[in-house]
Write a protein that binds this DNA or RNA. Sequence first.
DNA 1: CGGGGCTCCTGTGCGC
DNA 2: TGCGCACAGGAGCCCC
Length: 269
Amino acid sequence: MPELPEVETIRWDLTKDVKGKRIRDVEILNAKVIKEPKPAQFKSRLKGVCFVDFLRRAKVLGIRLSSGEYLVVHLRMTGQLVYSACKEEKARVIFTLSDGKFLNFNDQRLFAELRLVKDWQDLKFLRQLGPEPLEKDFTEPRFRQMLKGKKTKIKPLLMDQGFIAGIGNLYAQEALFLAGICPARAANALKVQEIKKLYQAIKQVLQEGIRYRGSSIDNYVNGRGKRGQYHLRLKVYGRDGEPCLTCKARIKKIQLAGRGTCFCPRCQK
DNA sequence: CGGGGCTCCTGTGCGC
DNA sequence: TGCGCACAGGAGCCCC
């Protein structure tokens, strides 16, 4: 499941590999992934256009085009953007580039979305997003302020994109483990010291996720079709029943807001 | 306005 | 062995 670190990794790869290249052709193999405009429009407005810049906000990739428009990509659960010398069999949309190679948009579960829009910042989802956790304006005092009056459990809150951008189920669980906080705690019940720890933990897990080029738990691959390494360093995600790497207690799994949540009942209070 | 639960979708892995 | 079902999850949406 591509979260902030995975999307950021793809952004880097595509910046290196396809920035400045031209779209020679667009092949739509499954039109369901194209949310706007209509497939014929989508095709004609993309043909002959260059990739100018690759931007990211939350888990969303915004590709600025020479036409002034933006190709907006949300990978959701199983989406992939892979630059390759060949067309991939599982591709839903294939962009043929000016270098004769291909940008494959794959998506097993058909949850991912492509959009071609005038200005991606205008998209409702983007306008409603919370702060970027790795940007300078996300400060500890601001985080403390954000948590005030939030009765929600801390873990679902961290996954709320309107509260803070880019964190999903994996990094939320890892950050809470690192901070020693139980995922079911009420957000407004966190002490100042705990907020500080969580603030640092959020930044740390996201930065490490980027450094290790993402977590390939499900089917995530980077812009070159390679798996990440961060899933090898996970402390709690997907480790229910296994011993805690710190204290050896059994990692527990509970449901929070309908999502599986692993934590160490001894280390996380 | 907030929170819970359902929905979209398909591959995987379990139990019988 | 094979079938059927639960589960995985990001975010929109409905409902209370």
